[in-house]
Design a protein around this nucleic acid. Structure first.
Lengths: 157, 157
DNA sequence: TTAATTGCAAACATTTTGCAGGTTC
DNA sequence: GAACCTGCAAAATGTTTGCAATTAA
């Protein structure tokens, strides 16, 4: 399969056909991008190396602040642009817990979140540790895209 | 107890001391506001009559659009201002499901939500119909403020 | 060489704020 | 009359977009 395919062309691999993403060392980011039909530019590789090195939660602004330390500047526009593409390809997840800002999560397997309302910190809750059960009395013709649980935490007293 | 107390003074009733809010007819909105230490102005009464007449989900912009039909104009600044106060007093809930906009919910008892990602519509899920269970391995010193489940829906196929 | 990408700056959408004038008690 | 509230307009915040210059293949 060609490596020059654009994202518009339908011969780029669909997410479902790809092996699920693992925590990559730097060298594999390039292949990860190519597998998803994205040109592996310096900026995308820089972002990928930062966010795919370990599970993390971050805003676009925070990511912008922590990238650029390995020789490649990344503008805030490119951070947004790249996160948008990564999101579309299932490489990151959005977590929406606070008005007016979007958190991203580099773990994409199903899980839930603790949100500390005082510090703004997010922590993962494994799906195995938190069960959601109930009668999903869905409107006709609809199906579930995702079930997201946010447990808001505050300090005792 | 005086009726002129300001919101800052501590002799206004705390939420916990108040009977839980019921679906009010117009006449009771004034008392509801007074009970929470808020001056019952025309604008607040107009907003209260609209959102406490039945359970509803709305954005500030939508609320601004549907108020003002009973003789009292409400500016968008006052809508935001009033929703902020109502939120602080537990008269409405925030529902955060979409980047860049806040939904408000005039039902404040614990419940969860279906969110139709295509139409942007929210629907309540009764707490009795959806059980969340698991080991809450909370960080020390923290307690749960709320558990919020959002079930995202899309059209089949 | 051609198509894709970057990054600046401007545009945008939503929400917050300062303050002069108006309302409530 | 004093305290509080409204609403305009401006500011703040977070995100998106248009486009010229740059980079990848």
């Amino acid at each position: 399969m060609g490596s020059q395919m654009s994202e518009q062309k339908t011969n780029s691999l669909c997410c479902d056909e790809l092996p699920s993403r693992t925590w990559e060392d730097g060298c594999k980011i390039e292949q990860l991008l190519r597998d998803h039909g994205m040109t592996p530019t310096n900026q995308r590789m820089e972002i990928g190396r930062v966010i795919f090195s370990k599970p993390m939660h971050f805003t676009a602004e925070e990511l912008h602040r922590i990238t650029g330390n390995h020789g490649f500047q990344v503008s805030i526009a490119t951070v947004y642009n790249t996160l948008g593409r990564f999101l579309k390809h299932g490489l990151v997840r959005e977590v929406i817990v606070e008005p007016g800002k979007v958190y991203y999560d580099s773990t994409t397997t199903p899980h839930h979140h603790y949100y500390d309302v005082e510090t703004g910190m997010l922590h993962d809750i494994d799906s195995a540790d938190l069960r959601v059960s109930g009668l999903y009395n869905l409107p006709p013709g609809k199906e579930i895209e995702s079930v997201e649980v946010v447990v808001r935490l505050r300090s005792k007293q």
